[in-house]
């Protein structure tokens, strides 16, 4: 009986405005909020350290392949009444060189620190173009997600839906960029100069690239045709679950507290519960729109 009474008191103390907690749930006290900040800091550091030591156990699930990227890209074009693009070995070789250059020189940009532009990579791969372009993506978890993100960005969408492009090349490669494990996706577009044409080369619409060494295009491209990583625990899902559960918990406690304080007409000095609730709902909405990955 005593145990059940003390358990009830503890629950009231933690989650309900009560005389034992100065009429503010203990889980909303300043010291509790400090503990949450520290715990999330530890979560970030802990998952990072575990990932570095045991990437097979705790890692970033990734499943991106060139054939799926090509299919998704062409599906978007055909949905807009455009002709599908043909996968070109030389453009793929240029994309591979670009990806290797980014990882080798540790940059995330359309132009390398040495000033190499995308059309240089394309030209050095042997592809002679009248028009060319480049889309970049990193750290997405699947092929469809990459293409959907490009389509949601006006400049990348413009590349995918440009009617003058005939060919496309891809590279998907995993490596270390800025000290972090990164999956890069390079998409290069082009339209070949006709052999008999004397038309001058036009500058690429969107550019990037830098070429380095001579390589056998087909062999290199096939080595960069996709990345699959299947850890036992996906860090992205783990973090989303922990964060949304925690904010959901805070919302419930804040709502209960607001209701009881209003009902009991408790006067106290604290932040405004309704404002906190609105703020955390906004945080939940924001977190719900977060997609893993960045574009350039």
């Amino acid at each position: 009986m005593m145990d059940s009474m003390s358990a009830l008191t503890l629950v009231l103390h933690l989650f309900v405005p009560h005389h034992t907690n100065n009429h503010r749930p203990k889980v909303l006290h300043i010291d509790a909020l400090i503990v949450y900040v520290l715990l999330f800091g530890l979560l970030r550091i802990g998952t990072g350290a575990l990932h570095a030591r045991m990437p097979d156990i705790l890692g970033y699930a990734t499943d991106i392949y060139v054939d799926k990227l090509l299919a998704a890209t062409n599906a978007k074009r055909q949905a807009s009444g455009l002709a599908p693009l043909a996968l070109d070995g030389q453009l793929s070789a240029a994309a591979v060189r670009k990806a290797a250059d980014m990882l080798g020189n540790n940059y995330w940009s359309h132009t390398s620190p040495k000033g190499a532009t995308p059309w240089q990579f394309i030209t050095e791969s042997g592809y002679t173009y009248t028009v060319a372009g480049e889309n970049l993506a990193k750290n997405f978890s699947d092929s469809q997600g990459v293409v959907e993100a490009w389509m949601a960005s006006a400049t990348h969408r413009e590349n995918i839906l440009k009617s003058s492009y005939r060919d496309v090349g891809f590279a998907v490669v995993n490596g270390i960029l800025n000290g972090e494990e990164t999956t890069l996706v390079v998409q290069m577009f082009g339209s070949r100069t006709k052999p008999v044409s004397l038309a001058p080369q036009l500058p690429p619409v969107v550019t990037q690239v830098s070429a380095q060494t001579e390589a056998r295009p087909a062999a290199v491209a096939s080595a960069y045709s996709g990345v699959t990583i299947r850890p036992k625990v996906d860090i992205t899902k783990l973090n989303h679950t922990v964060v949304t559960t925690f904010i959901g918990f805070l919302l419930v406690v804040l709502a209960l507290d607001a209701w009881l304080v209003a009902r009991r007409r408790i006067m106290r000095s604290s932040g405004h519960n309704i404002a906190h609730i609105a703020f955390f709902i906004a945080v939940l909405v924001i977190i719900g729109t977060v997609q893993r990955g960045s574009l350039l």
Binding site: L33, F40, G41, T236, V243, I247, F279, F280
Partner: peptide, 27 residues
């Protein structure tokens, strides 16, 4: 009714949201 504990509470609520967002974005 602006007291020190209220200021700290808002700062900590903001800090929680920032670290949570950092964790989600960087994962």
């Amino acid at each position: 009714d602006l007291h020190a504990n209220v200021v700290v509470e808002y700062v900590l609520i903001a800090a929680i949201s920032i670290i949570v967002l950092f964790i989600v974005i960087r994962s």
